[in-house]
């Protein structure tokens, strides 16, 4: 019987990248003002856009 490894990276890759982006966004606004705030808004908008993109995609598929 062949023992297959759990595909950790395949399953969690997107989650890890999104978590890192979120963490950066949360800290950026805390550490500075002005540009730091703007960078925070952009970073935190990414996970929200990802949700919207996948929901829209699921409705486009016929």
């Amino acid at each position: 019987m062949t023992q297959r490894r759990f595909p950790f990276l395949k399953v969690y890759c997107a989650a890890i990248i999104l978590a890192a982006i979120t963490l950066y966004g949360l800290l950026s606004a805390l550490l500075g003002n002005g540009l730091w705030d703007a960078a925070s808004w952009c970073a935190l908008a990414i996970p929200l856009c990802v949700i919207i993109a996948y929901v829209v995609k699921s409705y486009q598929k016929t």
């Binding site: 395949k10 399953v11 997107a14 989650a15 990802v50 996948y54 929901v55 995609k57 409705y59 598929k61």
Partner: peptide
Amino acid sequence: GALVYGPFMRRLDFGTLRR
């Protein structure tokens, strides 16, 4: 929840929404 996410998603692509 994040720990059980992995085993449940192992055969699925990220963001799969089976409507």
